[in-house]
């Protein structure tokens, strides 16, 4: 008789890889903390820190942004649509209701010059770096 030695974990490994794949694809919505809204990217630019949040379907009036003690707070609420009385929701994946995100900014920010824009469901907040936090060229003296 001929035996092939196979790794009994081969299939489990394959399954695990597949699961990871699926997880990666849904990662936009789920993080390890569960459901997450809004999703945020932060970019470090020479002059400022740019916070980009995805807030589709949130009206400008329903968004509040505040900055105090080095903490940026984005909060607001997403309204569910006004529909006629005899309507029924048959699929609910989008989150409605209020949300809040706090971001700690680990350096000094020129708080007077904060600015924010909302376009196509993307909220961009620019936090200009204070003079002391910017990268500086150092001249080498001969």
């Amino acid at each position: 008789m001929f035996f092939t030695v196979s790794n009994p974990f081969e299939e489990i490994n394959a399954m695990r890889r597949e699961m990871e794949d699926i997880f990666k694809r849904s990662q936009r919505v789920f993080t390890h903390q569960g459901r997450n809204f809004p999703l945020i990217n932060i970019y470090n630019q020479p002059e400022e820190i740019r916070v980009v949040a995805e807030v589709p379907g949130v009206a400008k009036e329903d968004l509040q942004i505040s900055f105090s003690h080095g903490e940026l707070k984005i909060s607001g609420q997403r309204q569910s649509p006004n529909l006629p009385e005899k309507s029924l929701q048959i699929r609910a994946e989008r989150q409605t209701g209020s949300f809040e995100k706090n971001l700690r900014i680990p350096f000094e920010v020129n708080a007077d010059k904060l600015h924010a824009e909302l376009h196509n469901g993307i909220l961009q907040i620019g936090l200009p770096k204070a003079e002391s936090a910017r990268a500086r060229q150092i001249v080498i003296n001969a």
Binding site: R28, P81, L83, P84, Q89, E93, G121, I122
Partner: peptide, 26 residues
Amino acid sequence: NAYRPDVDIYYLPEEYLFQVDLPGIK
């Protein structure tokens, strides 16, 4: 590598209404 955007579907007397989250897309 395609993401699945969130979808809400409503069943109304005259129509089906889909709402899809697609932030920042032209």
